[in-house]
Design a protein around this nucleic acid. Sequence first.
RNA 1: GGAGAAAUGGCAGAGUGGUCGAAUGCGGCGGUCUUGAAAACCGUUGUUCCGUUAUCGCGGAACCGGGGGUUCGAAUCCCUCUUUCUCCGCCA
Length: 425
Amino acid sequence: MLSVRFIAENRDLVIARLKVKNFDSAGLVDRIIEADLQRRKLKSRLDTGQASVNKLSKEIGALYKTGRKEEADHAKDKTGKLKEDIRKLSAELTAVDRLLRDLLVQVPNLPHETVPAGMLPAENELVREGGVKPVLPTGAMPHWDLARKYDIIDFELGNKITGAGFPVYKGKAARLQRSLINFFLDEAVKAGYDEILPPVLVNEDSAFGTGQLPDKEGQMYHVSEDNLYLIPTAEVPLTNLFRDQIIPFSELPRKLTAYTPCFRREAGSYGKDVRGLNRLHQFDKVEIVEVQHPDHSYESLEAMTSYVESLVVKLGLPYRIMLLCGGDMSFHASKTYDFEVFSAAQGKWLEVSSVSNFESYQANRMMLRFRDENGKKIYTAHTLNGSALALPRIMAALLENNQTEEGIKIPAALLPYTDFEIIGP
RNA sequence: GGAGAAAUGGCAGAGUGGUCGAAUGCGGCGGUCUUGAAAACCGUUGUUCCGUUAUCGCGGAACCGGGGGUUCGAAUCCCUCUUUCUCCGCCA
């Protein structure tokens, strides 16, 4: 979330910027400023009252020590009224604090000044395009048919075991999946990311920290017995590793990577886009996360984007990079690049990565800060993350784009990981 | 799952109702000494919020695992939750 102070000091800027996200924030912003004013007033009065009680208590202690019991008892009576005031004030303060927080979480992150205005995916800007769309053999099939033909991904079996959206990978597809995970992790480590294997269940504080709670609650699987959430992305545990931390200047940037399964309820998404591997409730992903100094976070965003690009290039997939317009960006992001690969048999661009700078939006929520060069002042850090990469749609594109009469050819980059060159009959 | 013990500053570890944001040691930072370093010695060293200030700063409030309570006053007493350790049970 944005800090209250920032909102109060930049009221008009905030309102203007959020218009790029098609968000009318004027009323909300003014209520926040008002609540903040209330809060400060209450806090001042409460502190004054508290100070009086503290002073009296000290005096009472001194009086008892010198045996002046009557005077002490008299002083005690004086605290009664003060304590009553304090009780009232602190109740009011708690209420205003809660209101303020409820309002703050409703304010989206500000889009960066380079983010184009717009509402629809069609208004996203093409940044660059690479790779070559393959010429498919006659009789080319979409991946769900290939999966059946070579008996490598079983959707029906997943239905039986769990339900729709939980496919079972078998044989060479299982091996290919594992190869992709290892390939992505190895590449990330080579690029300077520290490998982590985090929990896939997180608590409320973590889900709040990265912004899944409160507003995206319905998208996560919830284990009510223990009040834990299945992660929708490794971003959640990875970024929260830094929650409530003050990072020394010399340790910035911190770069992490992790493979995890990801779980998404995808409530309300039915229809043609969910076919095959296109949209799943459980999928595998390697994620990269970075904590960076505010002065360098946009350099990091570009670096992360180039890194992700290197992956799709190595896999030989036709891809394009889109700069998301304000309206298509997530609530929490300041700037996002989406990666899409072309899945030839479906004739469709599939989103396989989303690389975002959140600036201080997540860091404010989770008190993630750093100390400046002199070791004196403390500032909020910036956080970024990106998929590198999400596996199912990569798998879909690999199967479809590399199909030949003999079978599906494995890209050279993966050969050290698979023990086969082709998925054939 | 059952029984018991515990949770204090970056770390270790005192403190069982007032003078405690908290002894002491280690670590960190600054300095003296030294050609330099080490050792020794001296000083310094948390975070959040409110107020004030151009800034350094200053004044106040809060924080000793989380939440609540008793009291004029709580690290200290009570309740509750969480976590850790030991023993028992179960188990990949």
